[in-house]
Design a protein around this nucleic acid. Sequence first.
RNA 1: GCGCCUCUAGCUCAACGGCAGAGCAACGGACUCUUAAUCCGCAGGUUUCGGGUUCGAAUCCCGAGGGGCGCACCA
Length: 529
Amino acid sequence: MPAFPGRARPVPGGGHRGAERADRSPRRDGRPRGAVAHAPWPADRLRAKRRWPVERSRGLKLVTGIPYRFDRTATAADVTHQGADLEPGGESGQEVSVAGRVMLSRPQGRLAFAELRDSSGAVQLMALHALTEDFEAFTRLRLGDWIGARGEVIRTKRGEVSVKVAEWCLLAEARRSFGDKWRGVTDIETRFRQREVDLWANEASRKVLLLRSNMLRRLRQRLWDEGFVEVETPILHPIPGGAHARPFVTHHNALDADLYLRIAPELYLKRLVVGGFEKVFEVGRLFRNEGLSPRHNPEFTAIELYQAYADYTDLMVLVEELVSGLAGDLLGTTSLVYQGRPLDLTPPWRRATLVELVAEATGRDVGVHVPVAELRRVLRDEGVPFEEAWGPGKLLLELYEKTTEASLWGPVFVCDYPAEVSPLARRHRDDPTLVERFEPVVAGRELGNAFSELTDPDDQRARFEAQAAERAAGDDEAMPVDEEYLQAMEYGLPPTAGLGIGIDRLAMILADVANIREVIAFPTLRPER
RNA sequence: GCGCCUCUAGCUCAACGGCAGAGCAACGGACUCUUAAUCCGCAGGUUUCGGGUUCGAAUCCCGAGGGGCGCACCA
């Protein structure tokens, strides 16, 4: 019965690894108890407390063997489609094999219904004592069991498209309960510690991760279409650089050297531009040794891209097009609602300088040229703490972040930051105390960061040294001097614009979720004891 | 790191100083068109952990641990 390989023997010499299969003999009387009984730590106290029978379906044929493969001929969605035109009680004459997880079981004497869910959706199975093989066992299926089933596509008298099961097989048994069939799993800790349970039980969770995956696919496609080359740069860095953040430290034994998990790929990517890659991007994980919050995970995904011969104004257009384009691709509109509040991503987005926005939010007329004493007074009046060592640029940035950023619903490009706090950005063509930099702010949060890149190695060295001085003065997030990078710049970095976007943050916006953990499959949690 | 809140059966939740309970799941049974099926029955607990107060603690107090939120941090 080729359509239903559940009981098919491994094809000799054919297919995959057939000859190497260690276990050629079906387990005839139950599965080895040791497989579940030895429970290595942290098989955990939870398991000890649970009382699910290790061996279920006693006296039934289920345990005679789980097949190695299963030939599915239709998904749940396919079946629903195939049966769409059937009248209640109608039979299609079409036979399908479906596979998935049992979501509901409604045995009813000599008739039984079950809901089977796969990644396409759900379809009902109908089993009949007179028709279905192993009918008794079918009625004993539990929530969470995986099965494969073959049968005709029909519509029941009550009108539901179903597969009338002629033959079926167990693909995996659920030895643990997956939660309340109606309310699912809502405990936040369980949801994120046992994400597989959350994903099984909560459709919304699956949708969010699927949206993220689709978002990344579309993002890559758009950049490839624009001629960007996707590259990969090191995650283990000898010197942490490219951002203002504390790194994770690790150690390489053979080299006997400490290495840092990257806080940003920026410097390597620009070295690739020096090497002739005119349009590059990288999507990858960044690691910052900082606190957790609903908007911060210690490891997060960012995209950085660099485009030679462009400046930051080009990137504003690119960001608008990318973000609104992704919204259109994935949601069908650029006019969305985030956390109950309208958010219109349709280009063009507002462009305003940081100083203008601070003035709007606070009524304060400030700027990098305002004397430090006066800036300090403004911060004090606004209730923003500061440190003596801070120059005007840092004071201004702090003022913006504490008083203005969160109030910007956006989207808005916050432009022209102080040079003092932007050691890798090129000085503004109209004012050398500023840099040509912008952050796209959406829903009160920065979504990314971009600038016209600093290309002058002498200026870069001076900026690094200023950073190093701050580092020496106790700021362990300031960048050290990176001689390798300076050397690269000395070979010549053409005018280049660079951009970073937080993928998790973007996914949060598009998925309309408030917590970054929702968009990360396995967010960082404190290890259980 | 600090503050506030929280932790009860596999899951979702009651009980709030006086015998730890319900629904779902699970387990046993009935049922040939169910839709969170229904019905009967049976089980299920170190109330996160450790101390304390009390005749008596899931409940009040102290400490520890996990989680949530906020703050700090995060340019």
